[in-house]
Design a protein around this nucleic acid. Structure first.
Lengths: 141, 141
DNA sequence: ATACATGCAAATGGTTTGCAATACG
DNA sequence: CGTATTGCAAACCATTTGCATGTAT
């Protein structure tokens, strides 16, 4: 069973919905993306596979994925919106340059460990996180 | 000079704008808020001080404050939007329960230090951050 | 005086929703 | 078959913008 298929199964289990071709296509295509993506581009991609893929369905699936922590939403300073999945379990954080808009991705076990420790002390069960660091990158300085 | 006045001066310096009563009122009222707030409530608050305070002006000032890192924007899982200032320099992060929606605030020097260290290694100058941890709180577990 | 700021209302853009048609279990 | 899901278009809501008016410098 492919990675995408596994995620899809897990998604169905957690959301308790029916097994449909649309959902499967969305999650399969999603799993092919490596980095943050624009949702409009993604919808166009979906439409190549399923000519009548609807925006509404994509958003409906996205909502479930967000809720279950499979994907996250990033809003940059200037209001642009991106989505990103973390199907690989390797969660990564973002460093965003306010000057040129470039986005750097980092993985940090130290932050991860710290968060887990901290949450344990207050009895909170962390599922996913979103960390964005804004500032100025070396090129712009 | 009050804290709010200091922020206001700093804001003017950084954005290079003119000194107006509206901006002053917005920043003064903002500095009175302790925690995350709903912008519509905030606009109503402003209107008590300045009967014709406009949504547009509030958003315009917010935009500058966001850009300069004086405030941050939080979007919860279910799409609700909050704002929050960090006029106190004591930046704090958020832990958000996906089940009941409660928001816990934490301060973490360890995360702060780590971020500063990390950014130094890549030549990035961090200005502010947004860290949101989603999961389930002890009450909901 | 003149350029920037404000207020209003209309426009925008991302996301959600009502409803009729369709497909899963 | 009965109910959840889809697709479409219209609705929604937070935010932005054009323009005429007001105000700081």
């Amino acid at each position: 069973m492919s990675k995408a298929e596994k995620i899809y199964k897990e998604y169905l289990k957690r959301t308790g919905g029916r097994d449909t071709q649309q959902k499967r296509t969305i999650i399969t295509e999603l799993s092919k993306l490596r980095s943050h993506f624009d949702i409009e581009d993604f919808i166009n991609e979906i439409r190549k596979k399923d000519s009548k893929g609807s925006r509404a369905t994509v958003y409906r699936v996205m909502k479930g994925l967000l809720k279950e922590g499979f994907i996250q939403k990033i809003t940059t300073n200037d209001g642009k919106v991106y989505y990103e999945h973390n199907f690989t379990n390797k969660h990564h954080d973002h460093i965003i340059c306010n000057s040129c808009g470039k986005i750097f991705e980092i993985e940090s076990d130290r932050i991860e460990n710290y968060i887990n420790e901290y949450c344990e002390t207050i009895g909170f069960k962390p599922e996913y996180r979103s960390l964005h660091i804004y500032g100025t990158c070396s090129d712009c300085l």
